[in-house]
Design a binder for these strands. Structure first.
Lengths: 215, 215
DNA sequence: GTCTATATCACGATAGAC
DNA sequence: GTCTATCGTGATATAGAC
């Protein structure tokens, strides 16, 4: 979906050193973009974090925008691998429990990825307009279909499925994106696995019950 | 809370022209910070949006950081005025209905404010560390107390109140912060009042029911 | 394939004329 | 109180030596 933006991928040769350095740079860039956003990020900071000379970054990536796009592509790949679709044929409780758990796992394991993406969207997504195309809309409708089906079968209440999906996204991403606020509220420096597990539990209970599923 | 950061407020003279220009600049700065974050924002862009010469910005505000702090103070003021505390003496359904509606109204009316704040937190809140002090923790505990009380009275399920509060925040702010994504999912350019009303409705139903409140 | 040196420009900030 | 001219810095990006 995003790959069309930067037409450079399958046509990469990929010596061993190159691949390794590119991965180091992308990881460093992810941290820098998460902290300072696209405009605020500097190639210098990325080089420092990567432990490479500044101009090596330019050697491996044409410019800042291309590097940024590569970071985003990486994130979407991660996303696709970590999250399975909601299974319409399962019972709502089981399907939702698994989906929420997967989303929360993602928030805990890849908070930087979540934040880079969040910042892009907060800015109005000027660098990834193509991503939010009609294709995206269709992908979203397949998501909501699951809930429509469940509602038709009388398994859950007739609540607008779009807003159920938004709720699943917002409530789970929140723990990655707003971690410092949540930690401060809980009186901690950062969140532990236990905090994430408790959050997963609470969210699962509230949402399953909230949409009217009766064990 | 934040005012201690910049010790400059009550001690402002405030000729009529000054006050007017400062308001114009703060509004312009809010838009620029929302779009590009603190580091990514430029004084030049702010001046352009304000329709004033660039150096006027420096005349009214010492530097970029002070202007940013002023924008944040403005946002917190707005916040304090728009949102009442949850009322523990009301029935959960009524209290939550009102709170969710108020948060959603804020998301619709002040999306830029929400986004500036969100970006600061996403960055790890380096410019407003003081805000997340022990005072913040105490304020948060007063929030959760309401739910603890309701749970003790058997009005709602015994769910960790902290995560109920996080859910209220995340689900409502999402409509301001991630508007472009939501609009794309719904196949629209931007969100209408009707979209917000429907979201408010869905969230209210799911959350009230989800925490186990039985009409 | 890798790094040094540098061109070019936009940034935040200020000095001083009006 | 307001604006013009400009300074110094640090940014992206590139040319070319190794």
């Amino acid at each position: 979906m995003l790959m069309e933006i930067g037409s450079h991928r399958a046509d990469k040769p990929g010596g061993r050193i190159r691949q390794k350095n590119e991965q180091i740079i992308i990881a460093a860039a992810e941290a820098e973009f998460a902290a300072n956003g696209f405009k605020g990020a500097t190639m210098n900071n990325i080089a420092l974090k990567a432990g490479l000379p500044k101009s090596n970054i330019h050697y491996y990536f044409k410019n800042k925008l291309q590097l940024y796009i590569e970071v985003l592509i990486n994130i979407i790949d991660l996303w696709d691998n970590a999250l399975n679709e909601l299974d319409a044929d399962s019972e709502p409780a089981a399907a939702l429990r698994e989906y929420i758990a997967a989303k929360m796992r993602f928030s805990r394991e890849y908070p930087l990825a979540s934040r880079v993406f969040a910042k892009e969207i907060l800015s109005g997504a000027p660098r990834i307009k193509q991503y939010f195309s009609s294709e995206y809309r269709e992908w979203f409708l397949r998501k909501t279909d699951v809930f429509s089906k469940w509602a038709q079968q009388g398994k859950i209440d007739p609540i607008d499925p779009a807003h159920i999906v938004f709720l699943l996204w917002s409530s789970t991403q929140h723990y990655a994106d707003f971690e410092v606020q949540i930690a401060a509220a809980l009186g901690k420096k950062s969140l532990s696995k236990k905090d994430f597990d408790e959050a997963t539990d609470a969210l699962t209970k509230i949402i399953i019950r909230g949409i009217g599923y009766q064990g």
